[in-house]
């Protein structure tokens, strides 16, 4: 009886102290593409439009995903990275920031390191495909900016990810 009363009290206190659990951490601040550099790259590529902006180009895919505790780019994603490497090789004035992420299992610091290794792995492949080292910056957000929240595999799978961000610099 006492227990029930206490838990009822606790529940009401919790309800009284509850707050918004909304955690939307998708970064919604797109920096506009420098028009000068777009024009320049179009000249370099000898085409009218930047293939980066073509939704049907393989370059439209800007994220690669990983199994748990893995930081090697998966075979299925290698053509995507190869396309970006090819683009960077043909557009030496363009630069990309590779942003590594991890799911929330593990410690925050371990996950930061894991995300960094994922990003660095993408950078190596980009360089192998012809990108110059100074065209590719890598950072990690670890588990700090999850694309999906929730303690389940469907959320975790979306968060084990490297993003190629052409708007960061």
């Amino acid at each position: 009886m006492k227990k029930i009363m206490i838990s009822a009290l606790l529940t009401s206190l919790l309800a009284a102290c509850a707050s918004d659990p909304v955690k939307n951490s998708t970064d919604a601040a797109p920096v506009s593409d420098g028009s000068a550099s777009s024009a320049q790259s179009a000249r370099t590529a000898g085409t009218q439009s930047d293939p980066l902006n073509d939704p049907n180009s393989p370059l439209a895919k800007r994220s690669v995903y990983y199994p748990l505790d893995v930081y090697v780019v998966q075979d299925a994603d290698r053509p995507t990275i190869a396309a970006h490497a090819n683009y960077l090789a043909g557009n030496p004035n363009r630069a990309v920031r590779v942003e590594g992420n991890a799911d929330e299992r593990g410690s925050n610091e371990y996950n930061l390191a894991l995300g960094q290794r994922r990003a660095d792995g993408v950078k190596k492949l980009l360089e192998a495909g012809g990108a110059k080292s100074d065209q590719v910056e890598t950072i990690s957000y670890g588990e700090e900016k999850p694309a999906a929240t929730g303690h389940d595999e469907s959320a975790w799978a979306q968060n084990r990810r490297s993003d190629l961000n052409y708007n960061a610099r």
């Binding site: 930061l112 960094q116 660095d120 890598t138 950072i139």
Partner: peptide, 27 residues
């Protein structure tokens, strides 16, 4: 430094920090 800079820990005398850097590969 380039990459990630993280995990600071103070030495007991407060004169140094252990930190984790990815600048030379790995963390």
């Amino acid at each position: 430094f380039r990459g990630s800079n993280s995990a600071p820990a103070w030495s007991p005398d407060g004169k140094q920090l252990a930190v984790v850097l990815s600048r030379d590969g790995g963390s």
